[in-house]
């Protein structure tokens, strides 16, 4: 079986390989072919004739696709599992605010709020968290979209995907992430209770409000104004002792839920305006963020 080349080395010929492939060789023949194939490039190429070219092409294409497409992170896979479109997930994953630095800042802030609660241990234990948590998504969204923040902002402006849709997608990602983190922080408070979740509706209301405002003024300014308004509202309404605020009362919560709904309506009505401004904006030259 096989043949010997000019240098005296044994090679499997097409006939032997065919017999091997069809299972017509005995054990010794099989083994020598297998051992030989792993080390002999010339004989490996002969094996090509034994495989359906269409099958090789199909496998190759599937393989190239699998290798090109980035391995999705856990969150990305989960979102796809939940039925979110693959392209939407990719856009979400590119949210600049989702980088480690922002997550770290949010986690640190929340950790301090929880720490403060444990130190004071009094009736005001939850106040820090309640006041700080609604600000986090605002800060996050502010660093999620815009010139100088999003590296592809300039290219994005010249692309047909609506900028408001992009902003909303990013806002949803940031809001989702910070809400999860704040919820985790709430569970670590010394005294659990529904009061510890008092930040949720204000957080939603403020985010919606700032997005609605962003249809009229610069997004960054919109987030700043909303955050400022919240700080003032907290400062004015907190009444010691023991510290409490009408903002976290039942009436306050209803008010924030209403605010969120109203802002959502405004957003939907005015989104076209945002597209018109942003997409075709008149801001001065974009300062590209350079690569480190």
């Amino acid at each position: 079986m096989g043949g010997v080349d000019a240098a005296g080395a044994w090679h499997a010929d097409g006939e032997v390989l065919g017999a091997y492939s069809d299972g017509r060789l005995d054990a010794a023949g099989r083994w020598s072919v297998e051992a030989h194939l792993t080390s002999c490039a010339a004989c490996r190429l002969q094996a090509r004739a034994l495989v359906d070219p269409a099958r090789l092409r199909r496998l190759r294409a599937a393989l190239i696709e699998a290798v090109d497409v980035p391995r999705a992170g856990v969150v990305e896979r989960l979102l796809v599992r939940l039925g979110v479109a693959d392209h939407t997930v990719r856009v979400l994953a590119a949210t600049p605010a989702l980088r480690g630095s922002w997550l770290l800042a949010v986690a640190t802030t929340l950790a301090f709020a929880v720490l403060a609660a444990w130190v004071s241990r009094g009736a005001d234990a939850t106040m820090w968290l309640l006041c700080v948590a609604p600000l986090l998504p605002l800060a996050g969204i502010a660093v999620a979209y815009g010139p100088g923040i999003d590296p592809t902002y300039e290219i994005g402006l010249a692309a047909p995907l609506g900028s408001f849709r992009l902003l909303l997608l990013r806002a949803a990602t940031v809001l989702g992430t910070s809400t999860l983190l704040a919820a985790a922080a709430s569970l670590m408070l010394p005294r659990l209770g529904w009061g510890a979740a008092g930040w949720l509706l204000p957080s939603l209301g403020l985010t919606a409000c700032s997005l609605a405002l962003a249809t009229t003024i610069e997004p960054l300014r919109a987030f700043g104004i909303t955050a400022g308004a919240w700080v003032v509202a907290v400062a004015v309404t907190v009444a010691p002792p023991p510290p409490s605020s009408v903002l976290f009362s039942a009436a306050g919560q209803v008010a924030f839920a209403t605010l969120a709904l109203l802002a959502a309506v405004v957003m939907m009505v005015r989104r076209g305006r945002f597209e018109a401004d942003r997409g075709f904006d008149t801001t001065p030259r974009f300062a590209a963020r350079r690569l480190r």
Binding site: R30, E34, L45, L50, V51, L56, R60, I64
Partner: peptide
């Protein structure tokens, strides 16, 4: 290097499939 990967596939996929058949 994607090209090298393609070349490696072309070299090794056929015999691998043949051997897996066994």
């Amino acid at each position: 290097d994607s090209d090298a990967f393609g070349a490696l596939y072309d070299q090794h996929a056929p015999w691998l499939l043949v051997r897996l058949r066994r």
